[in-house]
Computed example of a mutant assay.
Amino acid sequence: MDLEFLQSMDIQILVGVAVAALAIVVSAVYLFASTKSKGCLDPENFKEFKLVKRQQLSHNVAKFTFELPTPTSFLGLPIGNYISCRGNDSQGEEVIKPYTPTTLDSDVGYFELVIKMYPQGRMSHHFRELRVGDYLVVKGPKGRFRYQPGEVRAFGMIAGGSGITPMFQVARAILENPKDTTNVHLVEH
């Protein structure tokens, strides 16, 4: 009887260890899946993203490429939403301004902002001073508009100046989705 008792205890211990290991694996998968589906943004708190590339497109427009935490990370910005960027103006005062990335969540590992810098623009000063290796402080997603594929038959857009980036984001999402048959019409001023 003592041998049977010990064998049943060994089986109970093995079952307990197996159940605990399974619980750990399930928890890890859930945590990974919930983190992955959420993206890198936080709507309540500002987060820092490192500038890895700056490309001057014209005398007052540049494309800024920011690194996400891992090569497989994505921003987590619904189509039609924007982010709030925080920086300092020429007087050292804090400025917060909305921007729409030109990248989509299908662009993993990074996001890009195309910024027109105005001579007297408070946030423009911050972007003019931003160098590769510096960090941009971002919060989001923000906004109430969210584009849903196939929601409308045609999407008409009128944009000018810096307003082109939100339209670019929506148009790109439509054109890159083979299942989305929405017609896009863009008038740029």
Rank of each mutant, 00 (worst) to 15 (best):
D2S: 14
L3T: 14
F5Q: 08
F5D: 12
Q7L: 08
Q7R: 10
S8Q: 15
S8N: 13
M9Y: 02
D10V: 12
D10H: 13
D10F: 12
I11H: 08
I13C: 00
V15C: 10
G16E: 10
G16C: 08
G16S: 13
V17D: 06
V17N: 06
V17W: 11
A18I: 11
A18K: 04
A20W: 11
A23P: 00
A23W: 03
A23T: 05
A23C: 11
I24E: 09
I24D: 08
I24R: 09
V25P: 03
S27M: 13
A28V: 07
A28S: 13
V29G: 11
L31G: 13
F32Q: 15
F32S: 15
F32V: 14
A33T: 07
T35Q: 13
T35A: 15
K36P: 09
S37M: 12
K38G: 10
C40S: 15
L41I: 04
D42Y: 01
D42C: 04
P43R: 01
P43A: 08
E44Q: 07
F46R: 04
K47W: 00
K47R: 12
K47P: 06
E48T: 11
E48I: 06
E48M: 05
E48F: 05
L51T: 10
V52Y: 01
V52L: 06
V52D: 00
V52H: 03
K53W: 00
K53H: 10
R54K: 13
R54N: 12
S58Q: 03
H59G: 01
F64A: 06
F66T: 09
E67K: 11
T70S: 14
P71M: 07
P71F: 03
P71R: 08
S73W: 02
S73D: 01
F74I: 09
L75A: 04
L75P: 01
G76K: 08
G76D: 06
G76H: 05
P78H: 02
P78S: 04
I79H: 07
G80L: 04
N81F: 00
N81H: 13
Y82H: 15
I83C: 02
I83F: 01
S84P: 01
G87E: 11
N88L: 15
N88A: 13
D89P: 10
D89S: 04
D89C: 02
S90E: 14
Q91P: 07
Q91E: 09
